[in-house]
Amino acid sequence: MELLQLMIGGLANGCIYGLVALGFVMIYKASEGVNFAQGDMMMLGAFIALGFGNTDQMGLPFGVAVLLAMVLMFGIGWGVERVVVRQIFGQPQFALVILTIALGFVFRFVAGSIWGYTPLVLETPFAGQNLRSGGIVISLADLVTIGVTLVLTLALWAFFAFTRIGLAAQAASQNQMAAYIVGVPVMRVNSLIWGLSGAVATVAGVLYATRGAIDPNIGLLGIKAFAAAVIGGLGSLPGALLGGLIIGVVEPVAGRYAPGELAKMSPYIIMLIVLVTRPGGLFSQIQMKKV
């Protein structure tokens, strides 16, 4: 029973890791780059929603606040791509890694100077409501988290698999020059994807905030979300979610039955095992070209 309880909490946690990982995977799918600031974008999204929604700030209704935050973060993601990331278009991935790490620090500084470094709580309509069945307590926040994540993953998967823009984005990631030649507006697609990943990050941030207080350093959760994305295989949306769920479930279980340090290491140990045994992740996207 205890194990089951731990696992439900873990699943909800894993969904959040999965959502942040989705953000990485989207950008990776579209531009073959990895946005190391994704965790910080999640943090910023959560804070913007808090700024709109909390009664002592602007006091808008919860739904409106989240929507506004998503729109704003879409704009920020779009803007970051337009103003900063586009400048290093075509440069090696390494440049983007360092650039986004630095961007993450900038986001953290911005959030810290606006909202301060003391933890704040986002007011949500479903705070503190629990469902009980048998000996298990499921909080409404957990259920919402799991539901929203499933819907969002499906929607994004459909976006990349069936829409014109989604396919164009995949083409742009595989070979920019070739994508140009067949008429894909690579730059515009990139901006759009960055904006979308900002919006997804906001959802992740809001869901994270329903489960506890937030401060500007929660962006470090992004490192765990990487592990999730890599376990699933960078470039696979369902894989990212699966990776997030694996990490989310293993972490609390390891924390219960093993020393705390081991629990903290567990996501990375799983990730290294996956990388060593299946270098492309569980849903591998790497193919050797046949010559």
Binding site: E32, N175, Q176, G235, M288
Partner: peptide, 11 residues
């Protein structure tokens, strides 16, 4: 030099 990125997923 103007450069274009190519995927690392295909080797």
């Amino acid at each position: 030099q103007k450069s274009y990125l190519k995927t690392e997923r295909m080797k």
